[in-house]
Amino acid sequence: MNDLEKQLLMAGLPGTGKTTFLALLWLAIVGGRTPGVKLADYQDDRTYLNGIGARLQHCDPTLHTELGEDRALKLSLLVGETDDPAVLDIPDLSGETWREAATDRHWPSRVEALATGNKGLLLFMHGREFDAGATIGQVNELTDILSQGSDEGSEATGHATGDTGGHGQLPEGPPSDANGKSGHIPPTQVALVDALQLICEQRGLRPARVSIVISAWDLVGEGVTPREFVAKNLPLLVQYLEANEDWLEVQIFGLSAQGGDFEDADSRENLAKVDAVERAIVQDRGGGDVGVHEIALWALGRS
């Protein structure tokens, strides 16, 4: 990697919007709608970016994995008021890579190299589909309520939600396999802290910069900022960030790269009428609208 190359590591479980983010970032950059960031030239291989960008523009609800494509955003850019040259490189690692890291406790050596050599981290979670990690006490309380409060004799299942308004469900208890691997998927906030510890604390450079991206932000609901969302739903993460703020600089973003639901026909039709970059929703921690490139710039230390 040369001095101009700025590599960001993008981490998140499957379905947390990493590829959609890349598609939106590409469309915003190539469309000239990223103040302070512009293409230096048009010499980079854009096959993959053109492909995922087009699908975002088409409001394509199902993207089949394009095996064999060059899966990365790698662009020669001019950054800042002084047009500093930089090559932005964001490999698009499979969400399964991160799932295996969380559950099986290993990752490919290529990811190890990325984890130790990146300039910043983009950490993704889904704004609605996440495991809040209810405690046993909360489960037992719920069990009591269900067993006492139902004339129909509702059966307590042990599944419970956290304080998230009903989005978190308990995974089944994970048996260890023959290799002693637990196989269990930790609750989302534990997985996020684990990722930060693995990438930033145990391997990465210090100080570290991280953009935490809450995807599908349109599904979270109005009246809550990304910061409030994290404070309410991810208390362990909040503690970890505050306890390590002397070296770990974090910005939180809410992102709806699609701007709405591509699965619903009416919604999709309405969304298709709007420019892909325009219909996207990107908010900073306080709920202010920002450009999608700010997510990358923050992690690069340029914001």
Binding site: G15, T19, T65, E66, D92, S94, W107, H126, G127, R128
Partner: peptide, 15 residues
């Protein structure tokens, strides 16, 4: 497979 919330699925690098 459609992903939760309708976000485009992670294409991902085959590692």
């Amino acid at each position: 497979e459609p992903q939760p919330g309708g976000e485009i699925a992670d294409a991902g690098v085959d590692t």
